[in-house]
């Protein structure tokens, strides 16, 4: 029986951690903009070109169109 009490304590504290994470994410405004982060993750920095002239590099393929 006591083992159930321990398990209960563990489960609730884990749940509390997630609640805390949720509240933190709301507070820091992570849920304010639900559109741009989804696109932003797809933008990658092109590899830096040593000669400084990028027009000779092959074009990256478009993914959105």
């Amino acid at each position: 029986m006591s083992v159930i009490i321990i398990l209960l304590a563990i489960s609730i504290s884990i749940a509390l951690i997630f609640l805390g994470a949720f509240l933190w994410s709301v507070r820091t405004g992570q849920l304010d903009d639900d559109i741009s982060p989804a696109s932003r993750i797809l933008f990658d920095d092109k590899p830096k070109n040593l000669t400084g002239n990028s027009s000779k590099l092959p074009k990256t393929k478009g993914y959105a169109s």
Partner: peptide, 26 residues
């Protein structure tokens, strides 16, 4: 999303800009 891309890379076009962040819904 192109607008987003361009605006968040404003620092590459305009010297002196440190960073830009877009809030798309607004």
């Amino acid at each position: 999303s192109s607008c987003l891309y361009l605006l968040e890379n404003l620092h590459k076009i305009h010297e002196g800009v440190i960073s830009t962040q877009v809030n798309f819904p607004r």
